[in-house]
Amino acid sequence: MWGIHLGSLARRSAAVLVLAALAGGSCVRNPPPVEPEPTAPPPGAEAAARARPDTPAPRPSPRPTAPQPPPPVLPEEDEFTARSLEEINRDSPLSPVFFPYDSSELDAEAQTVIQANADVLVQFPTWVVTIEGHCDERGTPEYNLGLGERRALAVRDHLVRLGLPASQLRTVSYGKEFPFVPGSDETSWAANRRAHFVITAQ
């Protein structure tokens, strides 16, 4: 649902995205003010506009007054383009895929999530996404490096089957080295058995 919403934004913003990316690193470092004055562009955007006069400076626009029904709430078009990779990833439009214990199988739920992520990625052909494979703490550190790789590859291969270009997708395994949730219970373990999407290039 929000994928469609995003798509309509994305088609218009694709050019802006590319240009913003070309404008260099200065604009991606500084987050726009949370509640911007309508007339004051973010300082980063200003610098970017100066650095490259033909770059349209992103306009801050007010957030939608009516909240979108389901999470995740997508940022507004222009805000999105001005956001750094760090910020986009912090509030990522791409959902993690979860796995059963010691498995890289994609069940129906996992495939639904991957489909939704594919719908987003189709709209942002310039994005490069790294699929991180993670494991829970119960396996050995050595074997888990392979298991994480398998999880990342399984998701990558499924996205390619859905038509995404492999050039847009990278994989990395972190085994059990970077857990998302501390704790030694089934809830934590389940949250850590995942393929996590990180947007590594706009």
């Binding site: 990779l85 760090e86 990833n89 912090r90 080295e177 970077f178 996590h196 990180v198 947007i199 590594t200």
Partner: peptide, 12 residues
């Protein structure tokens, strides 16, 4: 903290 786009990751 490890270099990278994801926070709260510690080096070894």
């Amino acid at each position: 903290s490890a270099l990278g786009l994801v926070e709260n990751r510690r080096t070894k």
